[in-house]
Design a protein around this nucleic acid. Structure first.
Lengths: 193, 193, 193, 193
DNA sequence: GATGAATGAGTGTTCATTCAT
DNA sequence: TATGAATGAACACTCATTCAT
């Protein structure tokens, strides 16, 4: 990469960084592209040079974050096939970026369908990992033979609920941490033979 | 109530009615006060005579709806002390106003905190009813001695998740209906001894 | 009309007045709604209270101007059935609002088709008047039996050409006046038996 | 020309080619310099190396096109001194590049005065050719002794009118072709003794 | 109490032009 | 000579709220 390309990437990263911070703070819908540009220290128009429109910026940011996340999950899968350990690690991962995922959960229902589809697709990849682990457990006779999709919707629905209402559940600190143990406990109960 | 007060109440009700319809249709954030006033057949300014600002209108509407809802739940409680029948009735009640509750679930996370607190307070009343029934069941030895708040958060979180992403789960028709049976089934499993 | 309605009409008129002046000066495409509002001494948003969008403002202005014009033409028709006198009066009418018609002719080709159709419809009404007078003349044996539509396109095309390139034909003053006599002369020659 | 100059000319030509195509397609005002550069396969900034600004590019393009056109007309003059044949050929020439001339006629009135003057100057060269032929015809006693400039304004104005409102006169195909015969017919009538 | 005209800050997006590389 | 990232003013349009009538 020559100097120009480095500079361009740097600007792009600055935009994504600012966007992430502002999205966490105010939610995507209430964040103005002007404010993001100002925080990134660039001209308003420059933002649209890197992303053709606001939606593309959101999608760009999500792609990076969710891909990163998905990769880390994949790593976890390889390391363990016990669902409680996997769930434990999964919650820890979310906790690390809780601000971002909280704003995501909060606003996802308001997003335009393309954006929402993109997010749900990423989530479905993660669900898939969980699905496989549970399926294996059922085959091994460790878990009860539940309807896996229903059970996972229950789990992800609850986590989503915590995240989306984070500010109502905790004044500061992590919601995920607060409900960490009980979430695992209840989920294991559902799987118990 | 004298004639003037009756007239005032009538106008207020018209506003609330229109607001409800429009909120369901377009979501609270995308509903303009002008449109609500037009649908109510009153002047734009009149709306602000009855509600100091848009938020107050939303709160006013919720107060009525959730109170009504809460009353119906109370009635159910009296009629039964079996949690599966109660949950069944509860889901049926939501289904009746699914449009409203879906738009509520979808947008609640974006509301200002006072508004959200109000909604969650109303929800907590309903939770309380469930809490009592489960507690009684545990005392009677019918249900396992679970941590009731956690278990209820799991339940309400999941229902909320269905409602908020309704349009991703079903193209038309009711999400609640679609997930009705499995929701009860899983929830009962959690309570099983 | 009560005071409010008078005030509203007054504001609307101020907007139309400012728009007309600015359109003449800079052309419709290069006129900003903000500038029109400023010239009218009202808030930018107020403009959109009276006209839902810029196009509607243009159409509103045209409707008034062309209707006024069409009415005056109709009056002329009644007064005379000699085409040279009619054409003479017609050119004088255009001359009175030459600034406006010049900017119209200049930019019409760039307008969105709905707007253009509207303008051409108004023009067609005027053509119709001319058509009738010429037809009568042919029947009476005063004029040669020409193809009236072609001949009128020739006439209106030329007038349009003068108007649209006004600033190239005259530095100040009226183009219509400058070409008044020769336009009539040539047109009469076309009609001559 | 050394190698560098050849390369420069080559780039310049590529820009002019792209500009012409895009101008025809979208009109000058709606054509972005970025798009022209992309079509030419050069960097955006390079365009401004060859032409100091967008106007200069337009003028440069016109110079070439109108000069080419003027040369072809000159050739026609040599071949014939009958005005109807000349006009016939002239209309055929326009028809060949009708897209370009239509977009020119449509937008010329919106151009800055320098640009417009340039175009009109080129047109005046063509007018000059017509002038000479008509003059000769009058001297020979073939045509009536009309005021040649007026008569030519009538002609060119009408052709311009067809071109500028092309899309209102024909849905597809050529306007010039459509009005070809009647234009010649009427014009000849004006010249008839 | 009711009206509705007016406000004005705010939004996402475009594009000719500049200049460091 | 050529590049292309960056600029920033400009644009049409929205909407909760105010206040004279």
């Amino acid at each position: 990469m020559n100097k120009r390309q480095i500079q361009k990437q740097f600007t792009r990263d600055k935009i994504l960084d600012s966007a992430k911070q502002i999205f966490i703070e105010k939610g995507i819908i209430n964040s103005a592209t002007l404010q993001i540009a100002e925080k990134a220290g660039i001209a308003h128009g420059t933002l649209f040079l890197h992303f053709p429109n606001k939606d593309a910026l959101v999608i760009g940011l999500l792609d990076i974050e969710l891909l990163k996340f998905s990769d880390e999950i994949k790593q976890l899968i390889i390391e363990t096939d016990e669902i409680d350990k996997l769930l434990n690690q999964y919650l820890n991962l979310i906790k690390k970026e809780e601000g971002f995922f909280s704003s995501l959960a909060r606003e996802m229902p308001s997003y335009k369908s393309e954006l929402r589809r993109k997010i749900l697709f990423r989530e479905s990849l993660i669900r898939e990992h969980f699905h496989q682990v549970i399926e294996k457990g059922i085959r091994k006779g460790i878990y009860a033979s539940v309807d896996i999709p229903s059970v996972l919707t229950f789990l992800f629905g609850t986590i989503n609920y915590y995240l989306s209402l984070k500010s109502s559940f905790v004044h500061s600190g992590s919601v995920i941490e607060k409900f960490h143990d009980q979430t695992i406990e209840i989920f294991m109960k559902i799987l118990k033979k």
